[in-house]
Design a binder for these strands. Structure first.
Lengths: 348, 348
DNA sequence: AACGATAAAGTTATCGTTAACTTCAATTAC
DNA sequence: GTAATTGAAGTTAACGATAACTTTATCGTT
């Protein structure tokens, strides 16, 4: 399999115009060394030939990629696509390209992607860890090597790491308190696994609220699982095996709520008449036209902006101390249509 | 801003072990030149040092990246994330890495991403064009340069291009015929713009079905717009300005259907009692528990697999002729829960 | 007229890896 | 016992671009 790709190089241009390679390189980068006349001549010709700089050669030589690596666990929900959009926006604004990789909530994929991004010598890394990430060794290595790294949403806690996340504990607490204020007392929680900060913190917030209002914490109504639709479906089914049903369920994510709704349909239960649902995070729409699917709103845009901000600080000053930022959640009652506005990229 | 990243290189390993750089390179790549004993010694040491090969250097030297570039218009819906997953799966299986970029349905972003991917010297390109892509010059240039390129779903038609798409015309026709068979006669269509094959073909299918069943084609009930929620919302609102309402609406995408549902909620209309909806494409769930949201199912997995297959054929044989593949759609009545199964990546 | 300053190039070395050869010793073949 | 083969390395020269110098001509100063 021979490759005979006729990719134009600086050399091709240089030979044709009888100048040195460096002159061409400088001209195309608008270096002050080169006269305006020569620049124009070179640029025009490069354009005619359809020259594209070779990313690899440029990186190798300049030792920087102007690129940041982004790893998310999934893109099949509302949350991450929205977050990705705001991260792109912020990064592009600062003239960084983003390389996106998806771990599909698998620790091995995550590890592989990290290695790929490292091998691309990205200038920095943004990571929301997978549900199954327990071995943090690679992150400690990365930290030691000095590559800027900032976690977001699903984070590894510890003073040596930078991260931006939402106050999940308070968010869950807010949601439950809203339910209590509405008059509910018998509250269940479809929770995430304790291994991940989101599952841990949101469950703690649930417990906080119950205790604060002197309600018993219903251990057998706290069901741990994944953060996806399937977990919601299965969790709800499990919950319904008791003859004793809760009045309302707090789901750890919007995706889990979707699974609950589906399960309810399959069981012939009506929401909110038979059982009500409240969740943390929101979807593109209140998909069930159920006026009672309140949710805790996560400031996605702010999170995207902040996380890029922190990373770029780390890139520009490798000695910077780790930053931990915790954003406040907000309760949203009867939220309906959330429109994602179109994104504008700055011109290059 | 100095960079003092201590990235381990082959050289570091070579010096330490008193062998040549090439020996290290060969050992790590399992080249038969090197004895098993030496390989073990080198691999062990490289591992201890946490060596990661430099992607750029490797690419530059070997002139291949083992990477394919993927451009999609959006990831905020159900369709593209699912497709991306199956593309990843197929590509990884063939030992290719995927670099994903999102155009956010903007032609300029698309162009920029193409250039970036070209500059990375990806081995091939997979593209679903944006809604606003009209200038196909860059694709003609790419074609001329000989870089393998395959479109999918949203394609540029023409004998010189390869693509994999769904028979959108037949799909729309199927949907409308289903509606007609159910007893509906007054059918509207929230259509996509004619500039993109999806909008064009699906609208043609709508017309086909109406004509076939001797129903008048309701020109003022064909409303063109984007393929997203907002277009559905606005389109439905516009439709409702007539006092004369259709019995059922065919929406060009699932996202558009979501917008319609939201608008219906806002207008106090009940679905399917007041007005029914049918759509092309499906979501993670039938989100409205409306038994009547039938849809035309798109064979997403097959499409992902096929498009990777075609691309790899082109990569392995640069002289290969363009291939156009059109997959059959399938009507899905009262479809409910679609679970995305977890994805397994092959080990490297 | 001799000086340094500046503008507009060109030279050289290097980034980290791999492809294509070459070397050299040990083994095999006849 | 010598030539040919093989195994296990090493050498050299790219790949395409950039950083850091160096050169050369031109200009304004004193």
């Amino acid at each position: 399999m021979k490759r005979h790709r006729l990719q134009i190089t600086l050399n091709d241009i240089a030979k044709e115009l009888n100048v040195s390679v460096v002159t061409v390189s400088k001209a195309l980068r608008d270096h002050p060394d080169i006269s305006e006349r020569t620049k124009q001549r070179i640029k025009k010709f490069a354009n005619e030939l359809g020259y594209t700089p070779n990313f690899s050669a440029r990186n190798l030589s300049s030792r920087r990629s102007n690129t940041i690596g982004l790893i998310v666990p999934k893109i099949g929900n509302f949350f991450f696509p929205s977050l990705i959009k705001s991260i792109y926006k912020a990064a592009n604004f600062q003239n960084y390209d983003v390389i996106l990789m998806i771990s599909y909530d698998d620790a091995e994929n995550e590890n592989r992607h990290l290695k790929t991004l490292l091998s691309m010598r990205v200038d920095g890394l943004l990571v929301a860890i997978s549900e199954k990430t327990t071995d943090i060794q690679i992150y400690e290595t990365i930290k030691k090597t000095g590559i800027p790294l900032v976690f977001f949403d699903r984070v590894i806690e510890g003073p040596e790491f930078s991260y931006v996340k939402i106050d999940d504990r308070q968010g869950a607490c807010l949601a439950v308190e809203h339910a209590i204020n509405t008059g509910y007392k018998r509250i269940a929680h479809l929770a995430g696994f304790k291994e991940i900060n989101i599952g841990r913190d949101r469950c703690a917030g649930f417990v906080d609220a119950m205790k604060k209002h002197n309600l018993p914490v219903p251990e057998n109504w706290i069901i741990e699982g994944s953060l996806n639709e399937e977990a919601g479906y299965n969790g709800f089914m499990k919950l319904c095996q008791n003859k004793n049903l809760p009045e309302i369920i707090l789901t750890v994510t919007f995706s889990v709520a979707i699974g609950v709704f589906q399960a309810a349909i399959d069981l012939g239960l009506k929401i909110p008449e038979d059982i009500d649902v409240i969740c943390i995070g929101e979807g593109p729409i209140n998909p069930f036209a159920s006026p009672s699917l309140s949710c805790v709103y996560q400031p996605i845009d702010e999170m995207g902006t902040k996380v890029v901000e922190v990373l770029i600080r780390q890139i520009q000053n490798l000695a910077a101390v780790p930053e931990q930022i915790i954003l406040p959640p907000k309760l949203k009652v009867r939220e309906t249509f959330v429109r994602q506005d179109e994104m504008a990229f700055p011109k290059r």
